[in-house]
């Protein structure tokens, strides 16, 4: 392994992770400095609906595609969402496994699993780029950050697919690309919309708490 690849796998990643953690901490402190609004009135809605039930329902919403009309009516978009996010988890895991537990990748089955998941996420990334560029609705709501983040992730998925076997016999280019992209990704994320997962627990918790207190969550249909 060259010094450059060693640095990319270790020093660079650790530095990028530290930077990300610092920015995230600052971000959370900034967010929590805004005072949370509260409800003074007595609860409404069916007996048994509580803020806690509402919050749990709201947080679990991500795994309840039938819970919202938008995901219920568009199962393909929901499936894309699942695959894309599994791809992110798999690629991040890979960036940890290669430097710290590379023996795991001696298993061809595991390597193929990583490649299948991340490869599928790459395909979803392409579909998402086409949708974002092709739909006038999506174009109207997109910022340069939206396009860039999506392209960045899609390219990163491709590099992860190539890096998964952790095989440098034919050259280190693909591994270097993956780790440099991962480091860039970690540094860029806190400033981009990709950091949405940082806010997700808060937004869903607060909405769920309010809607639970008001008896709207869990949603009843008929």
């Amino acid at each position: 392994m060259s010094d450059l690849l060693h640095f990319s796998e270790h020093g660079l990643q650790e530095g990028a992770l530290l930077f990300m953690a610092l920015v995230y901490t600052t971000r959370i402190i900034w967010f929590l400095r805004f005072k949370a609004g509260g409800d003074r009135q007595a609860a409404t809605g069916a007996p048994g609906t509580t803020p806690m039930k509402g919050a749990v329902y709201s947080l679990a919403n991500i795994a309840l595609p039938w819970g919202m009309e938008s995901t219920r009516r568009k199962p393909l978009l929901y499936a894309q969402f699942v695959i894309f996010h599994l791809g992110v988890v798999a690629a991040i895991s890979l960036s940890m496994i290669i430097p710290y537990a590379d023996w795991l990748l001696e298993s061809t089955i595991l390597v193929r699993c990583f490649q299948a998941i991340i490869g599928a996420a790459f395909v979803v990334g392409i579909i998402r780029i086409i949708r974002r560029v092709g739909s006038p609705y999506m174009r109207a709501i997109s910022s340069p950050d939206d396009y860039f983040s999506l392209v960045l992730l899609t390219v990163w998925f491709l590099s992860a697919v190539l890096a998964a076997p952790n095989d440098a016999t034919g050259g280190e280019g693909h591994l270097l690309t993956f780790f440099i992209l991962t480091a860039f990704f970690l540094i860029y994320v806190p400033f981009s919309k990709i950091s949405h997962y940082l806010y997700y627990p808060f937004t869903r918790y607060y909405l769920g708490k309010t809607m639970g207190y008001r008896g709207v969550y869990p949603v009843r249909r008929g």
């Binding site: 929590l32 805004f34 609004g37 995901t71 999506m138 709501i141 997109s142 997700y200 607060y206």
Partner: peptide, 16 residues
């Protein structure tokens, strides 16, 4: 307030 700020920062422009 915090709820509003959450809603203002969290949109991912997914179009759902």
């Amino acid at each position: 307030n915090r709820q509003m700020v959450g809603s203002l920062v969290a949109c991912v422009h997914c179009g759902m």
